[in-house]
Write a protein that binds this DNA or RNA. Structure first.
Lengths: 228, 228
DNA sequence: TGCCGTCTTGATCGATTCTTGATCCCTCCT
DNA sequence: AGGAGGGATCAAGAATCGATCAAGACGGCA
């Protein structure tokens, strides 16, 4: 069964879209707030998401960025705003498509099929668990275990570790990490990185902490003690 | 180099779109007929294609279908027709996106980035590496290896070596190097260059150090011992 | 409202890197 | 042969960067 998550704060839109999708045989989940959407995306892992940009509690672009940090689920943005700049930002932050309201249902359905088609054929469904040394990082569940035991990390700590673990052994620049964890506008706050690197090391203990190394003047990297 | 194929039978559109893509650093191929488009798609395998639906000799949808039988190259359809039915057909026949003319260039570029992004992430993606003699300079990782072993360089040392390695064998003037590594306002501090050239030579050892040669009164160059 | 965990910010300390000046060397020119 | 100009090297002080601690600021939740 293919499941689609629909997120919108207008009940009327929610009903209409849901009806159209159900008629085509999809299973549909609905959410009317950003929090709810993020919860369903982690807990139920739908096959695609239709996301309104204007939600009460969160900006749609922010949701895109958050979701993209752990999942490749196709996201189609639905928005009443035709603003070109918004479109560009949303697409660059991870949205796969952008449809302007009012939209035609057949077109939306066709774009959903495109999104699902991409997801269907690819190279083996990705295991969303990153492994590096004794560390296992479950991106969807936001859980880190080290040698089998869970490590308690705050959201920002987790995000930073995950960003580094996504490119094991590789240096990520300060800018890159800040942009990925804190979003745009924090590009120069390198002090955050020092603080969080320090806390992560402390929580990972002696052996684990040594995996997170600073590259002076450049950034940080997470090394697997097994290689090099 | 990322290559985009643009197919349209109106020269004006072709020029406009090409200019926008080239300005963003893409390589652009153009075609004004279906036959030409199919030829380039097989012969040159671009990284993505922008395809007008209304061509003289073939229907755009037909091209989509044909291409899809052997290739997953991302296809973005550009069309003056807003007909909902055409959109649905094109999307179902293999198009990844459908943009209606007139379109905004920034939005089109964003959608191109979305299409390319999908194609991008296979794991073993190697970074572009500059090679000169036994030296390998990985710009993305900020890592230099010499005959396979890593060389520890400070940021400025790395920047200077990278600047020279970008143009192997060619002389870069003092001004050029200073401008590239230290930024504007240091154009006359040629003493810095002597100090850093010295340190780089020391770290590269006997054979490697000989590759960094001074051109008295002009600047420095990095020579590959293999040639000249 | 008050509590609690998280995030931000400032201060301090140690280490590395950058800058700068002194000294020696080589080459070219007269 | 001697001097001038440019280059190489060394070493010490200055500036920067990173690690860590700790004190507010902020926001969610009971």
């Amino acid at each position: 069964m293919t499941t689609i998550l629909v997120v919108d704060d207008e009940p009327a839109i929610l009903r209409t879209v849901k009806a159209g999708l159900v008629a085509r045989g999809y299973e549909v989940q609905t959410a009317s707030s950003g929090r709810e959407a993020l919860f369903l995306l982690t807990a139920r892992t739908p096959d695609a998401a239709l996301l309104d940009l204007a939600l009460g509690d969160m900006d749609g672009v922010e949701i895109c960025r958050t979701v993209r940090s752990w999942s490749d689920v196709p996201i189609i943005v639905l928005s009443a705003e035709g603003s070109e700049h918004r479109k560009v930002v949303a697409l660059d932050e991870g949205a796969d498509d952008y449809v302007t309201k009012p939209f035609s249902m057949p077109e939306l359905l066709a774009r959903v099929r495109v999104a699902l088609r991409r997801r269907a054929d690819p190279r083996g469904a990705d295991d969303p668990v990153l492994v590096c040394g004794g560390l296992e990082i479950d991106l969807a569940r936001h859980v880190v275990t080290q040698a089998g035991v869970a490590v308690e990390l705050t959201p920002k700590e987790f995000a930073m570790l995950a960003a580094l673990a996504r490119h094991p052994g590789r240096v990520l620049t300060h800018r890159t990490i800040l942009h990925e964890v804190w979003g745009p506008g924090y590009d120069t706050e390198t002090q955050y990185l020092r603080v969080y690197a320090s806390q992560i090391r402390k929580k990972l203990g002696r052996a684990g902490g040594a995996m997170l190394v600073a590259e002076p003047g450049i950034g940080y990297r997470l090394v697997d003690p097994a290689d090099a």
